[in-house]
């Protein structure tokens, strides 16, 4: 997928402009930036769910030229937790993603096999997030777009999620994900897109952009190097 001079707007305000980059098979691109900067909107644009200015091409064709079903076969999107008012069970939710095949094994892989018959509304946010990740795993599309996949997850499942994404990248999947945890981003990113919330966006290789001062400016938050690792600076321990 290729982006050229892409501008994303929300209403009248420009969230980001002039973004050019490529999302390649077998690579993870992590999107970082403050709240409201336009990270989720960028993913929605790449999934063809909101319009943008500029050019987005998928396999040489403009995204807008794709029929909805064609695009769905190429791009899978994981976003907010879906509503639970109508009593869908976890199994039904997974079957909506990709039919009945592989539901049991994928549920087992995401540690939700015992929850399959339970309504989504009876689950915790973390369990629902795991169900959403399982639904994504059932989508055998070349491109995955994930919006904060580790949100709501406990530490064990955050690690599991990052490992799963690494494994999918190694299988050749093109992945773009929004993350808020810098260490998770460092663990997985091949490329970074930094969105500053003021209309600016920067794209580059992860090892070039993971730099303390740049990220401190991006988030307007103190960071510190500990043992060579960039971490949020929470101040001294008592």
């Amino acid at each position: 997928m290729k982006l050229a001079d892409v501008t994303v707007k929300r209403g009248e305000s420009t969230l980001l402009s002039g973004l050019s980059c490529q999302i390649r098979a077998g690579e993870v691109t992590v999107v970082l930036g403050p709240n409201g900067a336009g990270k989720s909107s960028l993913l929605l644009a790449l999934a063809g769910l909101i319009p943008v200015l500029g050019i987005i091409e998928l396999q040489g064709r403009p995204l807008s030229a794709y029929h909805r079903m064609e695009l769905t076969a190429q791009v899978a999107w994981q976003g907010d937790l879906p509503p639970t008012e109508f009593g869908l069970t976890v199994k039904q939710r997974l079957e909506l993603a990709a039919g009945e095949s592989d539901v049991e094994s994928t549920a087992a892989a995401m540690d939700i096999a015992p929850l399959l018959q339970r309504p989504l509304g009876e689950l915790s946010s973390g369990e629902r997030q795991r169900a959403e990740l399982a639904a994504l795993m059932l989508r055998d599309t070349p491109i995955w777009l994930l919006d904060e996949p580790t949100a709501h997850l406990d530490l064990k499942h955050q690690i599991h999620c990052i490992q799963m994404l690494k494994s999918q990248r190694d299988k050749g999947r093109a992945i773009m994900t929004v993350l808020h945890d810098i260490q998770q981003a460092m663990a997985i990113a091949d490329h970074l897109i930094l969105i500053d919330g003021k209309g600016g966006a920067e794209y580059g290789q992860a090892h070039q952009l993971f730099e303390g001062r740049k990220l401190t400016e991006l988030f307007d938050a103190p960071l510190t190097q500990q043992g060579g690792v960039l971490m949020p600076d929470y101040g001294d321990h008592k």
Binding site: L44, A47, L49, R68, M69, T72, A76, W77, G79, D80, P82, P83, F86, L88, Q92, R93, L96, A97
Partner: peptide, 17 residues
């Protein structure tokens, strides 16, 4: 309609016009 139970955006991402 089943997909729409997940909300309009999720339904659209699953191929619903």
């Amino acid at each position: 309609l089943d997909k729409l139970l997940l909300g309009e955006r999720h339904a659209e991402a699953l191929g619903v016009d």
